[in-house]
């Protein structure tokens, strides 16, 4: 299947008494094997969109298909299994379980989906940890790790079930720029290695410039959408420079 994500006329409203529309008739299709970055001002609806595609939230109307499957019709339980098998999440706040060690945290998605991980899966977790440079922290608890280390554990966790898509909402938003760059490089590499798709929300111009496709959301609508392949990375960077307004919060992020 060529299109990994297809959105048709997706709308999202919030609130019961005061109803606010956050997303307006979003039509979007994302090709397989790409790194897609969503950018846009704060409150524009990036996270909402990401969570809808990631089955964490339901659209008020419209259709979402992942990997050729219409997921709008799945019930809550089916959505949960789908998230477990096909989707990896990396959040801004690393959201590790404090009761479990780094290695245990990485293995939890496997526990949830298939029960006790066999040696082969533990081996995979070890490999992932080694690959992103946290192999010596497997037995440590999250509170014993730095922010960057925790985020790397979260990356390994998002990959353990070999998901089709990884959704990352400002995964480096909480890290200093050096650590952030390092984590991003690792993420991109490992995503490529694992042949999975990466969809990311970011406020970081440099990160966005490294994406295959950049989609700007403003006030719940797609404002700008360009693909690096066609225009070249330098062009994208220049484009992004011009669109300074949308990175209003980039520097303080």
């Amino acid at each position: 299947m060529d299109e990994i994500i297809v959105l048709e006329q997706v709308n999202k409203f919030y609130g019961d008494e005061v109803v606010v529309q956050v997303l307006f008739d979003i039509d979007l299709s994302i090709k397989s094997g790409q790194f897609t970055a969503f950018i846009g001002p704060s409150g524009s609806g990036k996270s909402t969109l990401l969570n809808i595609i990631g089955l964490l939230e339901a659209p008020t109307s419209g259709k979402v298909s992942l990997d050729g499957q219409d997921i709008s019709g799945l019930n809550k339980g089916e959505q949960a299994s789908y998230r477990n098998e096909k989707i990896g999440f990396i959040f801004q706040f690393h959201y590790l379980l404090p009761e479990f060690t780094a290695l245990e945290n990485i293995l939890i998605p496997h526990w949830i989906g298939k029960g006790k991980p066999p040696q082969e899966i533990v081996g995979r977790a070890m490999y992932l940890m080694e690959r992103i440079g946290i192999e010596q922290y497997g037995g440590k608890y999250p509170h014993q790790l730095s922010g960057g280390q925790q985020q790397r554990v979260a990356i390994a966790r998002s990959l353990i079930n070999q998901p089709k898509i990884i959704f990352a909402d400002e995964p480096t938003g909480n890290l200093d720029s050096k650590t952030s760059g390092m984590v991003m490089e690792l993420l991109k590499e490992i995503v490529r290695e694992n042949k999975t798709n990466l969809v990311m929300v970011t406020h970081d111009r440099d990160i966005a410039a490294g994406a295959d496709r950049v989609i700007e959301i403003v006030d719940g609508r797609i404002n700008c959408d360009f693909t690096a392949g066609r225009m070249g990375r330098e062009k994208v960077r220049q484009e992004l420079e011009h669109m300074a307004c949308t990175f209003s919060s980039a520097d303080d992020a």
Binding site: G77, A80, S81, N84, E85, Y95, I112, G113, R157
Partner: peptide
């Protein structure tokens, strides 16, 4: 609840 939220995001269903 934080842990439950994370677990649910990773595929724990309501019954679990």
């Amino acid at each position: 609840s934080r842990q439950l939220g994370i677990l649910k995001a990773m595929g724990t269903n309501d019954k679990s």
